[in-house]
Design a protein around this nucleic acid. Structure first.
Lengths: 207, 207
DNA sequence: CCATTAAGGGAACTGGAGTCCTGTTATGGG
DNA sequence: CCCATAACAGGACTCCAGTTCCCTTAATGG
């Protein structure tokens, strides 16, 4: 092929491309929060973002693809984590953070839309799994430290403990529509700690 | 208005109407399980049900409306409940029932689609809440009996205990796509019992 | 049985989501 | 500073989900 140096891919992440992505993701988040998953058409997103409709279709293709990219973006924006030195208090802080997120008008609606997308499309689903993996991993050290302090038994599955905190809150969102009160969030943390102490969340292969 | 007796509503629940509903709901469930929420168009449902497209649009109108009616139908089909006399065993049975439902190819996909619908539409959401209310209420007596036996403290919120069993299973479905193993279901039951015994799920106003 | 009228069926119509084509902008290398 | 081209913008086009209109079927009451 003569001089055909196969350029592996000459992407242009500079200026405009990045700006367009930011604008589109912002608009997509707005629409998802305001109108919901089913009312999201890409033309509308493009209009709000002040961007050509073709661009959105070319780069993201489908609603689910857009949600997937939005989740990747969200996962990168890490939230600060408290560290009190007492497992219960750390988990209460986590539970309250989740509660506030789901209670917030914009964030709450946005998460509902994201869940809807994940239930409909495999790509959006795995993006969401990645998002939660990231968020859960941020809080795992709390449990790890509790193990080292002897608060919970050796061989405890740290991820399971963190998941046990959020689970009742998300489930509540699912089965009853109403928002989660602070008491319930604290209860979720308490239940997680008590079960972890009792050795319910042991990794397989530990006594 | 002369002879205008205002007939409150002269519905015809006989033969055909009921049959059409059953056929349409069956088809709707099939499509939701096979194709998912986003790929559900009412014309396709009508074709599968062997029913006129207009009929489906007239009676149910939207995808969400169809899901709502499907949930009402599902809530009516009650499932048998075991009663062992030991709270942990009862809740393990419940957890395994939920696990099997979500693990089943058809049922699992169907539930994902239903959740998607509920996250998009208020009517579908309240239908789903009603469905879960029914299902949870069926298992509440297990906890009530445990209170009477003294297994868990007086003043325990029975509904919260039942919800605590399902919560980790649904959350797992959400956060990681993979199916739920039997160990995890048992753990969910164990955690619920331990937390309930410790008095985490007390109704407000009890010591 | 027959009359009445809910309820269903068929087919043409329509609006907007998604695609395609063509021209324009601005990024990055030299 | 300039060229090559990645990436964007605009508008015409297509196709089908959802609507509308009108006719047919069959449930109900007497």
């Amino acid at each position: 092929m003569g001089s055909g140096r196969v350029q592996p891919r000459a992407l242009r992440p500079g200026g405009r491309t990045t700006r367009v992505r930011a604008q589109v993701l912002q608009a997509a988040g707005d629409v998802l929060a305001e109108q919901g998953f089913t009312h999201l058409d890409l033309a509308d997103v493009a209009r709000r973002a002040g961007v050509g409709k073709t661009t959105v279709y070319r780069r993201w293709g489908t609603v689910a693809g857009l949600v997937a990219d939005l989740l990747i973006d969200m996962a990168e924006q890490s939230l600060p984590r408290t560290e009190t030195g007492i497992l219960l208090d750390d988990l209460k802080a986590n539970a309250q953070l989740v509660r506030r997120t789901l209670a917030d008008a914009r964030q709450g609606s946005l998460f509902k839309s994201i869940i809807a997308a994940a239930m409909c499309d495999a790509r959006a689903a795995s993006a969401m799994h990645g998002f939660y993996d990231t968020r859960i991993a941020e809080w795992v050290p709390c449990v790890q430290q509790a193990i080292e302090r002897g608060e919970v038994p050796q061989g405890t599955d740290t991820h399971k403990v963190i998941r046990a905190v959020s689970a009742p809150l998300y489930y509540h969102l699912l089965v009853t529509g109403d928002s989660i009160d602070e008491t319930m969030a604290d209860q979720a943390a308490q239940a997680a700690v008590i079960a972890a102490r009792a050795g319910v969340y042991m990794r397989p292969g530990h006594s």
